Simulated scan of single mutants.
Amino acid sequence: MRKIVCALLLSIFVMTSGYTVQAAGFKDVPEDHYAYEAIIWAEKYDIVNGYADGTFKPNATITEQQLAKLLANFYELESPFDELKKQTPAAIWSDEYYNRLASYGVPLNGYLDNNIRAASVKRGVVAQAITHLAHGKSGLDQSIQFLIHYYISTGQNPQYENRNLQKFFGVTNNMTRAQVVTMLHRMDERNFYEISEDAQAIHENTSNASLNTRAKNGQNQLDKTMQLTTPSKSAWEGTYSYYYKWGKGATDFNRRDAHITNATSKSFNIFITANDGTAAGNVDGIATITSSTKAVMNKSSNGNRCVLEFERLNNAIKITEVDCRAEHDEGTNFSGTLKKQ
């Protein structure tokens, strides 16, 4: 039924609007993009949305909390009566999606920690999360086999086919927004949009387990190699934000958000978003710590040149962009002093 409605909507839309590339509302997704049809489909069903500047950023690395939103929307998961009690108590936009996913015991890492939520999600985690909802509780290898058997994924490293399943699939690699949407589109085409009996039973919760217990069970279901521990108490780690509303218009604002995770004595992961009303961008990468209060990143995880200098202040972080034009639109950058949340 879902596919029939989708086809009708698409045909009506094309016949009446006359638009082509802008039909999906994303100016950076041309008709010849491999995920064009999947992205149109996902937008039509409110499974995914883009950025304020009209882009989708299909090649941007997807974070776990972005994945959480896609899964909750695709499966139309119900909200539980209670909420997760997090280790990082600050309320953020992904809370509602993680509450819903916890209710179904979905294998994810970031239920209790905002910093883990903001980190890039690995392909192995995506495989287990999707398979849990579509097919039932499954280990990492079983999840990969499910996705490959139904041609939801074709793997990433053909040199390992029939030799090493996990390397063939690329379990430790990151995924892009377009890749995940394509997977969900294929799930829909193959009628895997019904919730598995395992996930539904966890949601019905006849044992009256708390939401936190169901979340932790989901975390523990992940393969040991895919589990992330709570980040160390590094002085660098945390969520940093800046917001300034300078006018009454809907686009009259400046916002910066930075999430630092997996900090060691030598480096840390950094994910930053910047939005100046009509221009936006994000960058994901690894910064090298050069002193007790300073660090630098030279390129993004996409391989683009992006030089960011970091200075750790008292409950804040100063970010100076040198050259990240390949990572965001004209009119915005990642520079600014952000307060630790």
Score class of each variant (00 low, 15 high):
residue 264 T to C: 04
residue 9 L to D: 14
residue 289 I to S: 08
residue 155 G to Y: 00
residue 302 N to W: 09
residue 243 Y to D: 11
residue 214 R to W: 07
residue 229 T to A: 14
residue 23 A to E: 11
residue 98 Y to A: 10
residue 132 H to T: 15
residue 320 T to E: 13
residue 148 I to S: 06
residue 152 I to T: 07
residue 173 N to L: 14
residue 214 R to G: 02
residue 69 K to L: 14
residue 234 S to H: 07
residue 45 Y to H: 11
residue 303 G to P: 09
residue 3 K to P: 06
residue 157 N to G: 09
residue 154 T to G: 05
residue 124 G to V: 01
residue 328 H to V: 07
residue 19 Y to M: 15
residue 171 V to C: 01
residue 260 I to S: 00
residue 281 G to Y: 01
residue 90 A to G: 12
residue 224 K to P: 15
residue 315 N to C: 09
residue 251 T to G: 11
residue 316 A to L: 05
residue 38 A to I: 05
residue 80 P to K: 13
residue 42 A to D: 02
residue 55 T to E: 08
residue 325 R to E: 14
residue 143 S to Q: 00
residue 155 G to L: 04
residue 172 T to R: 13
residue 7 A to C: 07
residue 223 D to P: 11
residue 253 F to S: 08
residue 105 G to A: 00
residue 85 K to Q: 13
residue 250 A to L: 14
residue 211 L to C: 01
residue 165 L to H: 05
residue 255 R to Y: 15
residue 250 A to F: 05
residue 133 L to K: 02
residue 131 T to F: 07
residue 6 C to G: 07
residue 299 K to P: 09
residue 325 R to C: 11
residue 143 S to W: 06
residue 27 K to T: 03
residue 328 H to C: 04
residue 78 E to K: 14
residue 5 V to P: 03
residue 324 C to G: 01
residue 303 G to H: 00
residue 169 F to C: 03
residue 184 L to P: 11
residue 8 L to F: 09
residue 132 H to E: 15
residue 190 R to S: 09
residue 326 A to R: 12
residue 68 A to I: 06
residue 270 I to V: 12
residue 7 A to E: 15
residue 118 A to R: 08
residue 93 W to M: 04
residue 147 L to K: 07
residue 201 A to S: 10
residue 141 D to K: 13
residue 290 T to E: 12
residue 21 V to E: 15
residue 142 Q to F: 04
residue 269 N to R: 13
residue 292 S to C: 07
residue 330 E to T: 11
residue 300 S to W: 07
residue 36 Y to C: 07
residue 308 L to I: 03
residue 76 E to S: 12
residue 34 Y to H: 06
residue 326 A to T: 08
residue 244 Y to G: 07
residue 164 N to F: 00
residue 204 E to V: 09
residue 82 D to W: 11
residue 252 D to N: 06
residue 91 A to V: 14
residue 187 M to C: 09
residue 138 S to G: 00
residue 34 Y to F: 13
residue 227 Q to Y: 08
residue 306 C to R: 07
residue 321 E to L: 00
residue 39 I to Q: 10
residue 46 D to L: 06
residue 329 D to Y: 12
residue 317 I to L: 14
residue 309 E to G: 12
residue 339 K to L: 09
residue 334 F to T: 01
residue 34 Y to L: 08
residue 191 N to W: 15
residue 311 E to H: 08
residue 176 T to C: 05
residue 179 Q to M: 08
residue 15 M to N: 12
residue 25 G to R: 03
residue 236 W to K: 01
residue 68 A to C: 06
residue 81 F to E: 12
residue 116 I to G: 10
residue 1 M to Q: 13
residue 151 Y to G: 11
residue 241 S to H: 15
residue 249 G to K: 06
residue 76 E to T: 07
residue 318 K to R: 09
residue 274 A to H: 09
residue 165 L to W: 04
residue 187 M to S: 02
residue 35 A to I: 04
residue 108 L to M: 02
residue 100 R to G: 00
residue 80 P to D: 01
residue 319 I to Q: 02
residue 319 I to N: 05
residue 135 H to T: 14
residue 41 W to H: 12
residue 228 L to A: 14
residue 277 G to I: 03
residue 311 E to V: 06
residue 102 A to T: 02
residue 97 Y to T: 02
residue 150 Y to S: 00
residue 106 V to N: 04
residue 54 G to N: 05
residue 271 F to Y: 10
residue 192 F to G: 06
residue 102 A to L: 03
